[in-house]
Lab assay of single mutants.
Amino acid sequence: MDALKSAGRALIRSPSLAKQSWGGGGRHRKLPENWTDTRETLLEGMLFSLKYLGMTLVEQPKGEELSAAAIKRIVATAKASGKKLQKVTLKVSPRGIILTDNLTNQLIENVSIYRISYCTADKMHDKVFAYIAQSQHNQSLECHAFLCTKRKMAQAVTLTVAQAFKVAFEFWQVSKEEKEKRDKASQEGGDVLGARQDCTPPLKSLVATGNLLDLEETAKAPLSTVSANTTNMDEVPRPQALSGSSVVWELDDGLDEAFSRLAQSRTNPQVLDTGLTAQDMHYAQCLSPVDWDKPDSSGTEQDDLFSF
């Protein structure tokens, strides 16, 4: 819950932080000083300027060897085509990944977070970031790969997607708890209302004896509580940590079903599988986004697919 609360507080303090972009060759504004600060901008989305290598189908939802083989196929196909790589912007948030063309600003792909089953910074092609997700059109699994400016960037994108998945799962947990509370309150309110109706004398007997209905007592009954809980029953509950912020979080049926399955089948359902080692994760978390744009010590960066 700490990640969720800190993310909400950060967004309320400075929503404009989320509009910064990394990996864009110096076009961005001043960047936060450390990885923790940038992680807090996830709610509205972190932007990464990358190059799209392509996509291939895979048979399993996750796995280092599986993704490595898929990336190898994608890279080989991209090299064989001889075409310049498409420059894209990857927007990562707890909602998922939005992929747009840098030149036309046209939407290429919009992947809900619950469809993503794996992401990684490839070991062999260490400047490549990739994720595996279920197609929104059918049940097939797709591996999408992107060329980053350097290994640090690939690791940073991988960690960002993993963190977005974690925050999304926490949102789901909060929403589920809130819905259970509202359902319980609604049920209790309905029981109270039913009890009051059972003990209320029939209207005919009131008229016969000349008694008047006590409207004041009726007004004191917990009807307002019942209506408050039943009027918006169809509205999706939102985490309290975000009250007053500009973010509107809505959970669709697909996300609810997917996270429910994860909660039942996995020990740590909030953790998205990645190909990063503990050492890689520690190294990337210690980086400032400013470091992502620094040239690798191995030599001059080449803006070309064939540089790796």
Rank of each mutant, 00 (worst) to 15 (best):
T56N: 04
G275R: 02
F165K: 01
N105M: 05
V247E: 02
A3R: 04
Q134V: 13
I12F: 11
D126E: 05
M153K: 12
C143K: 00
K5N: 04
L53V: 15
E257Y: 00
A168M: 03
L103T: 09
S265L: 00
F165P: 01
V290P: 01
L272S: 01
S117D: 05
A133Y: 14
P289F: 05
T100W: 13
E177H: 00
D304K: 07
S93A: 11
Q86Y: 10
L50V: 14
A241R: 14
M281E: 02
E40P: 14
S14C: 06
I113F: 02
Q285W: 14
R29V: 06
Y118C: 00
P269A: 04
D253T: 13
I116A: 12
F129V: 14
K83A: 06
D191I: 03
R261A: 02
A284N: 02
G96A: 04
C143Q: 14
M281I: 03
S246G: 07
I74A: 12
T209G: 14
R13Y: 11
V271M: 04
F48P: 10
L103W: 02
P201K: 02
I97R: 11
E188R: 00
D256S: 03
R238C: 06
R151E: 00
L287K: 06
A130C: 06
K179C: 11
L17Y: 13
P295S: 14
L50R: 06
R261V: 08
D2E: 03
K84A: 08
Q279Y: 05
P237G: 07
P239T: 14
L11E: 03
I12G: 10
L66D: 13
G8E: 08
P289K: 07
R151V: 01
T225L: 08
Y131H: 05
E178Q: 01
R39M: 04
W35I: 07
P295W: 06
P32D: 11
T267N: 12
W22V: 14
E257W: 14
G45Y: 07
D280K: 09
E44Q: 10
A185D: 13
E178P: 05
V207T: 02
A228W: 02
A80F: 08
S140K: 15
D293E: 15
L215S: 05
Q285T: 00
K83V: 07
Q264T: 04
G8D: 11
E178A: 01
T230K: 09
L147F: 09
V92R: 14
D234I: 08
S297W: 00
S186M: 03
R39H: 04
C148M: 07
S227R: 13
D280Q: 07
L53Q: 15
M153F: 06
D122K: 09
S260W: 03
A78G: 14
A228T: 14
T158A: 05
K51D: 00
P222E: 14
T38W: 03
C119W: 00
T100Y: 11
R95N: 00
K79R: 02
H28L: 10
A185P: 15
K87W: 13
G23R: 02
I71N: 09
E59S: 06
A168R: 13
R27M: 13
Y114E: 04
L287M: 11
L159Q: 04
A69P: 02
T274F: 01
P289C: 02
T160F: 11
L242E: 01
N229A: 15
K87R: 13
A221D: 03
K51M: 04
A154R: 12
E178N: 00
S205K: 05
S297L: 00
G275T: 08
I98L: 02
S112A: 00
V161N: 02
K19D: 14
T231R: 05
S298E: 06
N138V: 15
G96N: 13
S205Y: 08
Q173L: 02
K79L: 09
R27I: 09
E40Q: 12
I132F: 15
T36H: 09
A154T: 01
W172T: 01
V92E: 12
K84G: 13
K84V: 15
S265F: 12
A133D: 10
T41P: 15
Q197A: 01
P222D: 02
S224T: 12
E64V: 14
S205P: 12
H144G: 13
G45A: 15
Q134T: 07
A284E: 00
T230Q: 00
S81I: 08
S298F: 09
R27G: 13
C148D: 11
A145S: 13
E109W: 10
S246F: 00
L53K: 08
S186K: 05
C119Y: 00
M153A: 03
E217S: 05
A162D: 01
A208I: 04
L193I: 08
T100E: 15
D256K: 04
C199S: 11
G24F: 08
G190M: 02
G244D: 15
M281T: 11
F259H: 04
S288M: 06
A278Q: 08
V290T: 05
F48H: 04
D293K: 09
Q187N: 07
A195R: 06
Q270S: 04
K30F: 06
L43D: 10
K220H: 07
Q155H: 15
R39A: 05
K220R: 12
Q270R: 06
R13E: 06
D37C: 12
Q139I: 13
L212A: 06
C286P: 08
S21V: 07
D304S: 09
